[in-house]
Design a protein around this nucleic acid. Structure first.
Length: 818
DNA sequence: GACTGAACTATACC
DNA sequence: ACGGGTATAGTTCAGTC
């Protein structure tokens, strides 16, 4: 029976049937029905001929290649047909053979057989089948399509019968459809267990939250169970009921927080031990765990999203939170955190504590659900733009996002995709070492009035576009006859053609779209418009890093180094122009310049900015970051030179912008951070140091009088590797060791907390005085004075000629007082 | 045992 | 291995006298 439906593709998978590849996509129709579509796919890859290969030779090889056959166990793969095409490869015109094969799994093996001397390269056999399918059939993830085809019942080994779907269709025709709002069914979940080590303890409870559904499953019996709690027979029964609820909820997305690394591996381990099936997949399959840098848990037919991984790549660089834990992240994005609960072993929990535990567990899922809703527009837009499925997209790092975007847009340039570098090549690239990066101007320490900050909009991206810097436009280290863009590197000059390359063109397109959607968003602020604008911004900003990344298909060290070089040249020239116009330049870092307005008014500064812009090449653009009432730059701890990457500014309406100071560093205690923040605020607001000084003295007195609470003297430092791998045993390593001895969970990536305590004997090393916050002991007044408080404010007061002794209340005359 | 510079470590800026 | 380089600063380590 024929059928035509609207289709929103969500989860992509493929299978083999009679030796051939088929793609199976789960999604929704416009009535909310769950739909599975099955489509055939004709896999192929490319063989590129060397420039001077004769037509006769090409035909001869085409014949030979057409007869290639590979016998595998239970499968024979043959070259089905070949087509000769005029294509581009790294910007060059090439003749390439499109080689169709019967099974993509053998693409690599067949490519290996095509090792004729006339073949320059074999490409695109290392792309995933799903990626190639999306490119060729234009079935873009999370975009509405019109699909027509035959309803499937018993074909392909009974795939339709075993699937929990409303309808299954064998695709005959795909076309794009008008976009209508799609609200995915989101189901969030979270587990609680006694032990942190995967599978070691029992799972005590599992919470599930979707739009109108909240539940906690447990097997603990307490006298009065709240309505949202469902008591199961035992742990095994609880896991089985969890699976049932997931099925019943009929979700498009199953969302967890660190669920790739904790919840799903834990569930798998317990299910295995208890001999129950964790059949979460729509086809009844159990989650599969793909090993990568981080293991990913895939559930067939449902997009499992681990929000933590998406947040790490997409949001973390713009976030205020000091950790990416659910509590802080939820507080930042939702204004609501986790429930308070003191973790104890389940055997020691009292009745009321169980009630709190259930609520705590439920709240984690509630937060995860709300975050998923909040981030949905971003996931949707990125899927549409990058064209990779949600599961992959939410796990990709920045370079992979850029690379996927490139690969899905190459056809607009008739380009064949470059291969992924192999291990040896990556090693070689890494051996080439670093190249010179950004320019940072050393500031002259002081308190300044009327500071102006200019910065270049997306500087590195606009340099890449303006000077056409990329792998395929790179001409080499020697000047050829033609006119070319040049850049000076430490190893010599490099040249890039002026003939536009696909990489800079794609980037220019991203920048234009970002501008367009940003303007649209300002006109009509909606989460979708914001998400679209942000997605292009994210991608555009990552393109520079991509070209310098040794794992990239389109890696080009020269292009990356030239980008940094031309950016340096550009900002230095701009600094000179600002100076020549009579302004005093205070500071500059990479793409920003701070200078004093002096006796000029704001309008004059703005028209000067306009003039500067008219002189900039290509798409480079300088903009006003802001006007500031005051700004402060300090010296380095050692020496009298100005410290780079460390300053504080205040706008005319009193908003602080603090960079680099201890205040913004999480590895300093709150006491020092809050004091420094207050000191900076007072000085910048009042224009002098007087009240800041008395405030500092007050805090020092409180410290000396032991009036400071423990929470303000705790130092938090991240454990970046396993304890055993540390060469230097630092205070935070000692704290981690102590935690381990006490049986507390110690994981790589965690923030270790400790304070420096007073000891009877005078100890030389800080680490000998380390205590955990829960340990008894008084803080070491001298340590906090000399190593936290004084260093945090010393350099600031030094600007006013105030020395350390005066801060500490010791008699000392101000040197600069006359 | 005190001193000193190098090494190691964490974190921030853009 | 899973974007780049630039920069500050604390603590320990290893060598010297």
């Amino acid at each position: 029976m024929k059928k035509e439906i609207s289709f929103m593709p969500i989860d992509y998978d493929y299978f083999d049937w009679q030796g051939r590849n088929y793609v199976k996509i789960i999604g929704r129709d416009d009535k909310g029905k769950r739909v599975c579509i099955v489509d055939s796919y004709e896999p192929y890859f490319w063989a590129i001929f060397k420039q001077d290969t004769s037509e006769r030779k090409i035909r001869e090889l085409q014949q030979k290649i057409g007869k290639i056959k590979i016998e595998q166990v239970g499968r024979t793969t043959i070259v089905e047909k070949t087509e000769l095409h005029d294509k581009k490869f790294l910007g060059r015109d090439v003749k390439a053979l499109k080689i169709f094969i019967t099974n993509y799994k053998d693409a690599h093996a067949i490519a290996d057989k095509i090792d004729f001397p006339e073949i320059e390269a074999r490409r695109e056999y290392d792309l995933s089948l799903i990626t190639k399918y999306i490119i060729d059939k234009k079935l873009v993830p999370l975009t509405w399509h019109k699909i027509s085809g035959e309803i499937l019942e018993r074909d392909y080994g009974g795939i339709a019968e075993s699937l929990d779907c409303d309808v299954c269709i064998k695709v005959e025709h795909i076309e794009k459809a008008d976009s209508i709002i799609f609200e995915p069914k989101i189901l969030a979940f979270d587990i609680e267990a006694d032990e942190f080590e995967i599978g070691k303890g029992e799972i005590l409870m599992i919470s599930l939250v979707s739009k109108n559904f909240k539940k906690v499953l447990t097997w603990t019996r307490i006298p009065k169970t709240p309505d949202f709690v469902e008591v199961c027979k035992d742990e095994a029964d609880m896991i089985e009921r969890f699976v049932k609820y997931v099925k019943k909820q009929n979700a498009d997305m199953l969302v967890g927080y660190f669920s790739d690394g904790f919840d799903l591996p834990y569930l798998r381990a317990r299910a295995e031990k208890l001999k129950v099936k964790l059949s979460l997949g729509l086809d009844g399959s159990q989650p599969t765990f793909a090993r990568g840098r981080i293991t990913s848990a895939r559930i067939s037919g449902i997009a499992h999203v681990d929000l933590l991984r998406f947040i790490e790549t997409v949001y973390s660089q713009y976030m205020q939170s000091e950790t990416l834990g659910l509590n802080e992240v939820a507080r930042e994005f939702l204004g609501e955190g986790k429930k308070d609960f003191e973790h104890k072993h389940s055997t020691r929990l009292k009745e009321q504590e169980w009630l709190n535990y259930f609520e705590y567990n439920l709240q984690d899922s509630v937060l995860t659900y709300k975050l998923a809703e909040k981030f949905w527009p971003d996931m949707l837009e990125l899927c549409n733009i990058i064209q990779e499925p949600l599961f992959e997209l939410t796990r990709d790092g920045m370079s992979q996002l850029v690379e996927s975007y490139i690969i899905h847009h190459l056809k607009e340039y008739n380009e064949i995709a470059e291969k992924r570098p192999l291990h040896d090549e990556i090693e070689e690239r890494r051996r080439r070492g670093r190249y010179e990066g950004a320019f940072v101007l050393q500031p002259i320490p002081g308190l300044y009035e009327n500071v102006v900050m200019f910065d270049f909009t997306s500087m590195y991206s606009s340099v890449i576009v303006t000077y056409n810097l990329s792998r395929s436009t790179f001409l080499g280290y020697k000047k050829t006859g033609k006119e070319a863009n040049e850049a000076e590197l430490s190893e010599g000059k490099v040249y890039f053609t002026k003939q536009p390359g696909f990489f800079p063109m794609m980037l220019e397109d991203m920048i234009e779209k970002r501008k367009k959607y940003k303007a649209e968003y300002k006109q009509d602020p909606s989460p979708v418009k914001r998400a679209r604008s942000n997605a292009y911004k994210l991608l555009a900003n990552a393109c520079y890093g991509y070209q310098g990344f040794f794992g990239a298909r389109y890696y080009c060290r020269e292009a990356a180094a030239a980008t940094a070089s031309l950016a340096r040249k550009s900002i230095l020239a701009t600094i000179d122009k600002i100076k020549a116009a009579g302004y005093q330049v205070i500071y500059s870092d990479t793409d920003s310049i701070a200078f004093l307005r002096g006796n000029k008014n704001k309008q004059e500064v703005l028209s000067f900015l306009k003039k500067l812009n008219s002189e900039l090449p290509g798409i480079m653009e300088l903009e006003l970051e802001d006007f500031y009432a005051r700004g402060i730059w300090v010296t380095k701890r050692t020496g009298e030179f100005g410290a780079k990457k460390k300053y504080a500014l205040i706008t005319e309406d009193g908003k602080l912008k603090i960079r680099g100071f201890e205040t913004v560093r999480r590895d300093w205690c709150n006491l020092a951070r809050e004091l420094q923040n207050e000191v900076l605020l007072r000085i910048l607001k009042e224009g002098n140091e007087k009240s800041a000084l008395s405030y500092t003295k007050k805090i020092i007195q409180e410290l000396k009088a032991r009036k400071v609470g423990k929470e303000d003297i705790v130092i938090r430092t991240q454990l970046k590797k396993p304890i055993s791998e540390y060469k230097a045993i630092t205070p935070h390593v000692i704290a981690a060791k102590k935690m381990e001895e006490m049986g507390l969970p110690v994981d790589v990536g965690m923030l270790v907390q400790y304070f420096v305590a007073e000891t009877r004997e005078t100890k030389k090393l800080v680490r000998e005085k380390v205590k955990l916050p829960e340990e008894k002991g008084e803080y070491d007044i001298n340590y906090y004075l000399e190593h936290q408080i004084v260093p945090a404010v010393e350099n600031i007061f030094e600007i006013f000629g105030i020395k350390k002794d005066e801060l500490l209340g010791k008699s000392q005359k101000k040197l600069l007082e006359f």
